[in-house]
Design a binder for these strands. Structure first.
Length: 695
RNA sequence: CUGCCUGUAGCUCAGUUGGAUAGAGCGGCGGCCUUCUAAGCCGCGGGUCGGGGGUUCGAAUCCCUCCAGGCAGGCCA
């Protein structure tokens, strides 16, 4: 609510993380050990954000770099990594291995010489030479843990914004049918990206593009009007779930066209009327789109996914965005009217100059059809120009509902609204099958001379979701044994092949509810539903994020309905266990938290390797998230959360806290768990995984 | 035909800018609930990293080539 945006998610992380009261003092007075060696760069130093470990890494690398220069008189940028096992050390420099060739000496000798000469800050307790010639560092475990307790995982929230506005477009489901699991992958990835960017300090605007003048919507309008013979009032009166009705109708009308190709004329006529926004078909289109979008938003809200503004294609047309872009494209010579050939009468954009399109059979892309209608790419170029504030026009806006969500409009009168569009960077979350089209949009920007914007026009591509053979068979799409060779089945809205998002969510929730009620037979219905929802959200969202973007997800019910191992509930369970420790400590009248000063004074012997390993893993959280957001490989966030939870579960079994007699040992364990909790909460927040009280 | 993606354990997949003994989950087998809740933990078994060349002290990772699968190359989106 605070931001005035619709993007409302339970603020899981911040709710539980204690405010860092000493931040100002800390910035003014760097900890000993960091001070004299702090990087000269002010920006890095004052940011002092969460990148605690990466900052330390950079510092240590700088020290070693200097030493290499002093000892061997060569310039070398040392790589720093984390050794596979704690016995080997906490950080490792493979520099000697890299230098062996230029120096013509054995790596181990180089490493040994460096180890004897180099003076690292006090947080490094010991150095050793390991393996083929790694220079390994052992850190002060208590001190690192204490430092982590004192700092925000993602830095200072008041530290200011780190960039100009980033626009993220995601979801973009055609408003003519129910959302399916492929759309979920898009929405979840987009949502996690937004959460990560915001946490890293970037202002983000979330746009959900509504293609309400396209062929797909036209088909459903034809289905209602001509196939069913319904008018707008009758369609308005249809019961929910309206998007399910459309789902069936959409595949039905496809078959209806095939029966009589003449019926295609109805589609063209409807498309024209939608574009012109005239007549009963246009009215039907508005109605259908609106009802379906309502359903989509409801589905997404179940998963904690929201938006700032719905951008409607009809407004791009209604406000002559394309006409404006068309003028620019013509004036710059980016497109021309084809006088002859198969594209005669079309305005086309030549792609042959661009190296990206080398080897293309047909090097021209139609932007305006011979009948005067505009292709999707054409509208998308206009839309992209607006996103960067390059069009010289803006939409009008009105509130979508009462939740701070806005939609575009063609007429004035929506009252004062936030400033939309005009981003410095645009990230479009669109599946990899549309890479070709997204490239054309970029080329469009380039050919208008907006080379920088073209560079900051990012297609966040991910592979599609198909149905595993088992899933396809379960749903009756594959029958018999004739299709034995087929590995998976591609979903198709047009053919009505797919798993609807709400159906899947219902199924997961049902299973969660069963599991919970088995464990807690006395739980009231409301709590039961609530818990089931939280678990289902976690299971589904995590399932979508853990896959790397380059891999097709062959959706399988067994995988998606699994709550053990690499799943969302596994993460949640670790948090429940952590909470139980504190609950029991409190019930026993014992201290539930340790402070950094106490931890700093604890004996080094208290930190067992696996306990320390949990801390060191947590210390890499922000760095991992930064890398994930920067590379758009969000599965790294999921992996980090898994690794952290896994190590916690191990520690939970091996190092009991409640019945540990030695108070200092108990404190060390508590500190490690506190560090875990802090990082894990931050990660779960990014992943949109709710944290249940029990499970 | 051209471009992009994928090929790692029975299955589903990780594997950071080339580096330490190629990891995890599921499934299989065997342990662990009088315990800070077993949606968990521990152990065992399981690998020509698609094939072949090359670069390198070192290749699952980089280069070349071949094979297999997926997607794209519409006046559909």
């Amino acid at each position: 609510m605070g931001s005035g945006l619709s993007y409302q998610v339970p603020d899981i992380a911040t709710a539980d993380i204690p405010e860092n009261a000493s931040r100002e003092a800390e910035i003014g007075a760097p900890r000993p050990g960091f001070g004299p060696l702090a990087p000269a760069s002010d920006s890095l130093y004052t940011r002092r954000i969460m990148l605690e470990l990466s900052l330390l890494k950079a510092e240590l690398a700088a020290v070693l770099k200097r030493q290499i220069h002093d000892t061997f008189a060569v310039e070398h940028e040392p790589v720093i990594q984390v050794p596979p096992r704690r016995e080997l050390g906490d950080l490792a420099f493979p520099a000697a291995l890299h230098l062996a060739k230029t120096l013509r000496r054995k790596p181990r000798d180089i490493a040994t010489e460096l180890a004897e000469a180099v003076r690292f800050p006090g947080i490094v307790l010991r150095v050793s030479v390991e393996g083929a010639g790694y220079l390994n560092l052992f850190l002060d475990r208590g001190r690192v843990t204490a430092d982590l307790l004192e700092t925000e995982v993602f830095g200072d929230p008041a530290g200011g914004e780190r960039s100009e506005k980033i626009i993220v477009e995601h979801t973009n489901i055609n408003p003519n049918k129910a959302a399916h699991i492929g759309h979920l992958r898009n929405a979840v990835l987009g949502d996690v990206l937004v959460r990560a960017l915001r946490r890293l300090g970037h202002p983000v605007e979330i746009q959900n593009y509504i293609d309400d003048t396209g062929v797909q919507l036209a088909d459903v309008v034809v289905a209602f009007t001509d196939l069913r013979g319904l008018d707008a009032a009758a369609v308005a009166a249809l019961p929910e779930p309206f998007d399910y009705t459309c789902w069936d109708l959409y595949s039905e009308v496809g078959r209806w066209y095939e029966e009589d190709p003449e019926r295609q004329a109805l589609r063209r006529q409807t498309l024209h009327e939608l574009e012109a926004d005239e007549g009963p078909r246009a009215e039907m289109g508005r109605l259908v789109a609106r009802r379906v979008v309502h359903r989509h938003l409801t589905t997404m809200r179940r998963l904690g996914i929201g938006y700032d503004v719905l951008t409607r294609e009809s407004d791009i047309l209604g406000l002559d965005f394309f006409t404006r872009a068309f003028e620019k494209l013509k004036a710059s010579g980016a497109i021309h009217l084809e006088e002859s050939g198969k594209n005669q009468g079309c305005w086309v954009m030549p792609l042959s100059q661009s190296a990206e399109f080398a080897g293309l059979e047909d090097p021209d892309k139609v932007i305006v059809r011979s009948d005067g209608t505009v292709t999707y790419v054409g509208k998308d170029i206009a839309y992209q120009l607006w996103k960067f504030g390059l069009l010289g026009r803006d939409f009008h806006y009105r509130k979508w509902g009462d939740e701070g969500l806005w939609e575009t409009a063609s007429e004035e009168g929506g009252g004062t609204h936030p400033a939309f569009g005009g981003g410095a960077k645009v990230i479009n979350v669109i599946d990899a099958r549309q890479s070709y089209l997204q490239k054309i949009v970029r080329v469009g920007l380039e050919s208008l001379g907006h080379t920088e914007e073209a560079e900051r026009s990012i297609h966040f591509a991910y592979e599609m979701v198909s149905l595993s053979k088992a899933a396809a068979r379960q749903l009756g799409y594959l029958t018999g044994d004739g299709d034995g060779e087929q590995k998976s089945l591609e979903m198709s809205g047009r053919k009505g092949i797919g798993v609807k998002a709400d159906d899947l969510l219902d199924q997961i929730e049902d299973k969660c509810r069963d599991n919970v009620s088995e464990r807690y037979p006395d739980l009231d219905a409301e709590s039961l539903d609530d818990l089931a929802r939280q678990l289902a959200t976690a299971a589904l969202r995590f399932f979508m994020v853990k896959a790397t973007t380059t891999r097709v997800i062959a959706f399988d019910f067994q995988d998606a309905l699994s709550f053990e191992g690499e799943t969302g509930p596994y993460l949640q369970y670790s948090m429940v266990r952590e909470r139980n420790i504190r609950r029991k400590l409190e019930a026993a009248g014992m201290e539930t938290e340790v402070d950094a000063e106490t931890v700093r004074g604890l004996d080094a012997e208290l930190w067992a390797d696996d306990l320390w390993d949990l801390v060191l893993t947590a210390a890499q959280t922000a760095e991992t998230v930064e890398k994930a957001a920067g590379s758009l490989e969000l599965s790294m966030i999921a992996r980090q959360a898994l690794e952290l939870a896994g190590k916690f579960h191990g520690v939970y079994h091996r190092h009991r806290i409640l019945d540990e007699a030695d108070p200092d040992l108990r404190r060390a364990r508590m500190a490690a768990v506190q560090v875990f909790r802090k990082s894990s909460l931050a990660l779960l927040d990014l992943l949109g995984v709710p944290v249940p009280e029990k499970m």
